[in-house]
Design a protein around this nucleic acid. Structure first.
Length: 428
RNA sequence: GGAGAGGUGGCUGAGUGGUCUAAAGCACCGGAUUGCUAAUUCGGCGUAGGGUUAACUCCUUACCGCAGGUUCGAAUCCUGUCCUCUCCGCCA
């Protein structure tokens, strides 16, 4: 959510930004409603002030008749105030609804446009794309042949989009978690495990829509809880309503969670295997920073994602996401796309991680503030998030990039200590 | 799940319908004073919104877990709800 005053004072900039992002909003209506709201607010406060005066004078009035007259006056003022208040609240709700629909402002260097062709590749990983002297299989074939992924079992027990990992895939999942935790711990992240459910107002604060036809969220019946789609939700909610100390910043936290996504409307689009599933495990990085730190921390998170995939020996490219593809809260977003040799006809890039600078957009909704020692008042923190590792996509990249002609799969060097072996042997 | 107790400023903690504009202490900030790792003393010390201004300058509204209600007036009374603590039960 953007600041109300900023919206009113920079209506043109906001309008242009919404246009760049392909979001239709009516700024003029908002400006007009907000003006009405403020008039009404002034009225409410004036009536309240008068009523307070009257109420106070009654305590000091001895004369019974006079007291009754004052009481009547007080009653009248409160009634008027209640009416004005109701009108104000109605305007406030309208303003808030319009305001909440407006996306974050955008980094001046983010590429303007929409669609894949507008995205800009900004970097390549250290590992070159491997040239195969045999036809590489995709992760579905590999997973089936080696007894690593059971999609049928998942479909039987739970439904399409669910799966069982088996044998070495289980070890890989745990190894990947352990590997990124060792990187993040050394970088000073606070390691956490997190709730897999969160209250709906937290989801909304982060920018998810727990309700409505377009929701990507599983909600729990007869409660205000939803399953989280990412630990970004809980890590962002962690300090909601809090005023933090500026000296704590930048504050780096990482969290392991299960991620649940309905993926409504995504059928048929790259749904093969475990690429797009309804549940997976992820280690998420999250940072709370001062406003002038967030750009640098965003680059830092992107660097860490690169280091993690360089360390795994997987080829990737980094994309600076164009304005049309940015989610509402993101000021700027980088995606890492790993090379997946089994995708498409001759391999394709597939998104494996993503990192966003959300500036104060989430903090304003979640009420996450900070205080600078010696300064009056508080300000909103900046929040950033980034994927350290999304297990299913990382497993796809490993299986497909490390497959051998004999059908076996070499375990990436960085994971061997955690997996306890250096190769997944081919089944005879 | 049952029974009880309790949520008040950064912290401790008073406050049971009207100078609460929330006592006091601690902590913190500024000044004064005194020769000894500091004491004493004076003052200041919240957040958010609106208006106003050269200026957090002045005015004002709201906020005592949260949401309602009663009342001219609520930290205080009523209802609901959330959370914390203690004991019991159950449990990985």
């Amino acid at each position: 959510m953007l600041d109300r005053k900023y919206l009113i004072d920079h209506a043109d900039l906001v309008q242009q930004n919404c246009h760049n992002r392909g979001v239709a909003v009516d700024i003029d209506t908002l400006v007009s409603l907000e003006r009405q709201r403020r008039e009404r607010l002034a009225q409410v406060e004036e009536l309240n002030r008068k009523a307070n005066e009257v109420a106070k004078s009654i305590g000091q009035t001895k004369d019974a008749v006079e007291r009754e007259a004052r009481k009547e006056e007080g009653r009248r003022l409160r009634e008027e105030k209640d009416a004005a208040q109701a009108e104000h609240d109605r305007l406030e709700r309208e303003c808030h609804a319009l305001q909440a629909a407006i996306p974050n402002m955008t980094h001046p260097n983010a590429p303007v446009g929409g669609g894949d062709h507008a995205n800009v590749e900004v970097r390549r990983g250290k590992t070159p794309i491997r040239v195969f002297d045999f036809t590489p299989k995709d992760h579905v074939a590999l997973g089936e042949a080696l007894g690593l992924i059971d999609l049928d079992g998942g479909a039987r027990t739970t439904g399409h989009g669910f799966y069982f990992l088996r044998n070495e895939a289980v070890l890989l999942e745990l190894a990947l978690q352990r590997y990124v935790l060792s990187v993040l711990e050394a970088e000073g992240f606070t390691l956490t495990t997190t709730p897999d459910l969160a209250q709906n107002h937290i989801l909304e604060g982060i920018g998810f829509l727990p309700r409505g036809p377009e929701t990507q969220v599983y909600s729990i019946e007869n409660s205000d809880l939803s399953l989280v789609g990412t630990a970004e939700i809980t890590l962002g909610g962690l300090y909601s309503g809090q005023t933090l100390d500026a000296e704590q910043f930048p504050m780096k936290v990482c969290g392991i969670s299960h991620c649940f996504r309905t993926e409504a409307g995504a059928h048929g689009r790259a749904t093969r295997g475990i690429y797009r599933v309804h549940q997976f495990t992820k280690v998420e990085m999250f940072a709370y920073t001062l406003p002038d730190q967030s750009d640098a921390i965003h680059d830092y998170l992107m660097d860490l994602e690169c280091r993690i995939f360089d360390g795994l020996g997987i080829p990737y490219r980094v994309i600076d996401t164009c304005t049309g593809d940015l989610g509402g809260p993101a000021y700027r977003k980088y995606d890492l796309e790993a090379w997946m040799p089994g995708r498409g006809t001759a391999g394709e890039w597939g998104e494996v991680t993503s990192t966003s600078n959300c500036t104060d957009y989430q903090a304003r909704r979640l009420d996450i503030r900070y205080r600078v020692k010696g300064e009056k008042g508080t300000r909103f923190a900046h929040t950033l998030n980034g994927t350290a590792v999304a297990i299913t996509r990382a497993i796809i990249a490993i299986l497909e990039n490390y497959q051998q002609a004999d059908g076996s799969i070499v375990i990436p060097e960085a994971l061997r200590a955690w997996v306890g072996k250096d190769r997944i042997a081919a089944k005879s």
